[in-house]
Design a protein around this nucleic acid. Structure first.
Lengths: 338, 338
DNA sequence: CCCCGTGACTTAACCGGTCAAGTACACTCC
DNA sequence: GGAGTGTACTTGACCGGTTAAGTCACGGGG
């Protein structure tokens, strides 16, 4: 089926291509009557502007890019990204921007993809997640002057727009809550230590534990996968002075930890309290349902997309703080057994 | 930063734009020496062909589209889609095709998105999931002559390329296995009944149960969410003659079912055996780990992407059967207690 | 009556590739 | 020596939009 172009509309309306372009874009230069006639014809023949032609003549590509840098096996089960993506979509769809996705294996590959996308004029901007210390992607974004918004990390991305939430505050709340319940041997299973938000959380965790006099607070690094979550949990629980509460950096590891505890015959929350991060439906799915640090992930995504569209339109906003995760107590936390 | 074009390369190499185009695309018409020189310059200045210009002059957009038609809250936790997506990517990335994503609310919206994408020449083809009976999308795909591959559903999509797996065979295997263990009150919690693969499974389930003389085999429809999975499970377990085994249409509902059983004080697998569909890491994460109908979801996705690229290149292949899901026994199934 | 301003268009260049058709030159062969 | 055949390019049209610049008719003011 031959797809209609503005030339087709022009012919049928008996005007020039230019007039059609003005009419469709709401620009002055055509009378109201002609505009209506042209719009009616466009509607009738199901016209959609060729995005390539539009992009070619200097306009936007009307697409933004997202790279995901986690192994496929983690992506599938990690609710975080899908939550983010559906948030992006809510915002982008409304402005009829498309979202282009690419799964990569390393930050270096991400840089390659950014360069390629930008060179191909395929996208107008990118959303950057999983910020690291001295992230290789930031200088490239600046060099390319590629509009971007960085999720997580406040101030670490130089001049690039950033959106972040106060993870330190959230973890502090979680620790205080556990201490209030009577716990004093609290451990933590963290995500990938290279990631900036992991470091923020670790620092805050150490700080609040120190300030509350919890001397044996320990963080075991893991990688967000269930397997590593199980391994870390096992390591913590077979020790002599085993913790009475564990905080996990995501819900997948928390669920895995719960399974390990059950497998070892420990009761949750009787023998072990569990706090998860990122309250996906997964947390309420298991038994007992997990106490979690909740936040509106898809709202976070929507906000990020909004900021990116701002950045693309040249309205720069330096640094946006999103809602802080708040504690949602459920059945997996209780005072420790005496 | 000004992005380099073939004109820039042409100037530096002292040849015409046309020669550069031939050189970059591996076409005859330039000498080997010139080609090398041009490629070196392209490499040096970091050239990437403008995809809009390329698409405009009749070539491919080098992008394929995927619409996801499930509520955001399900998408996040449903490992199936992310598995598929990472499979697509593995294949598309290798051919440097981009994947464009759109989350929609209804099949009608999906149709709209297809029309828009096609009109905008934004994509070369689409991947269609969640086939329904008399699916409204199929005639539109044919009308637009939009290359497509339909996942799930063999024969129901007319002339469109399809890829499917033998879900009936898989569920038959699961029922036979449970019967061999000694179960005869087997229930099933299904996915959305409108979806074609749900119907295939239901039919096969009823058939094998009838042939094995299981008279009270019942299917409770749900919608793939944890909440519905819990509700359906509760409904099944509070009845008088409660089943000793339940088969779930996805792993999220199976995990929810496990939690309900534990909450009701039933032991799994002692009092209740559980079989999940789509063996994501989630199944091995919980305690006990779930027996599942496994398949290589991301391999399935890769195969679908391959078929789509074939269809785009005009190499039509009618109907491809993917690997049948096979039973992976784990801790959630055992003979029923006498 | 003429000039000027304005609204409603048309014209044509341009974006950055692709590709059919044309050209220039070397080389072979009768 | 001239026709014929390649090879290695160049030229220029074209894809489908956008947009600056140009045209033309009409109306009002001096």
């Amino acid at each position: 089926m031959k797809r209609p172009t503005i030339a087709d509309i022009a012919r049928r309306a008996g005007v020039s291509k230019g007039a059609v372009s003005y009419a469709l874009n709401g620009q002055p230069g055509v009378s109201e009557a002609t505009r209506k006639r042209i719009l009616a014809i466009a509607q009738e023949i199901g016209f959609n502007a060729n995005s390539a032609a539009r992009a070619l003549s200097g306009a936007r590509a009307r697409a933004v890019g997202l790279t995901l840098c986690r192994p496929a096996r983690i992506l599938g089960i990690e609710p975080w990204f899908m939550g983010l993506i559906s948030g992006f979509e809510a915002e982008l769809g409304a402005q009829s921007y498309a979202l282009t996705l690419q799964v990569v294996a390393s930050p270096e590959q991400e840089v390659e993809v950014y360069r390629r996308w930008w060179g191909e004029r395929r996208i107008d901007g990118v959303i950057v997640t999983d910020l690291r210390e001295n992230d290789v992607r930031i200088p490239v974004l600046q060099q390319l002057q590629l509009p971007a918004v960085v999720i997580g990390g406040s101030g670490e991305a130089g001049a690039v727009t950033q959106i972040w939430s106060d993870d330190g505050g959230a973890i502090t709340e979680a620790v205080r809550y556990l201490v209030a319940l009577g716990h004093f041997r609290i451990a933590r299973v963290s995500g990938v230590p290279d990631l900036l938000h992991t470091q923020v959380r670790t620092k805050a965790f150490n700080q609040v534990c120190a300030s509350l006099g919890l001397t044996d607070a320990v963080t075991v690094p893991a990688d967000y996968t269930g397997e590593e979550g199980s391994r870390a949990t096992r390591r913590l629980l077979i020790g002599g002075d085993r913790p009475t509460a564990i905080i996990y950096d995501n819900d997948v590891m928390a669920v895995a930890g719960l399974a390990v505890a059950q497998e070892m015959g420990l009761s949750v929350p009787g023998d072990l309290s569990i706090v998860a991060w990122d309250d996906s439906p997964l947390c309420s799915l298991v038994h007992p349902p997990l106490t979690a640090l909740s936040r509106d992930v898809s709202g976070y995504g929507a906000q990020a997309a909004r900021e990116l569209l701002n950045a693309i339109d040249g309205r720069r906003v330096g640094n946006v703080q999103a809602q802080t995760a708040h504690l949602t107590p459920r059945g997996s936390t209780a005072p420790p057994r005496p």
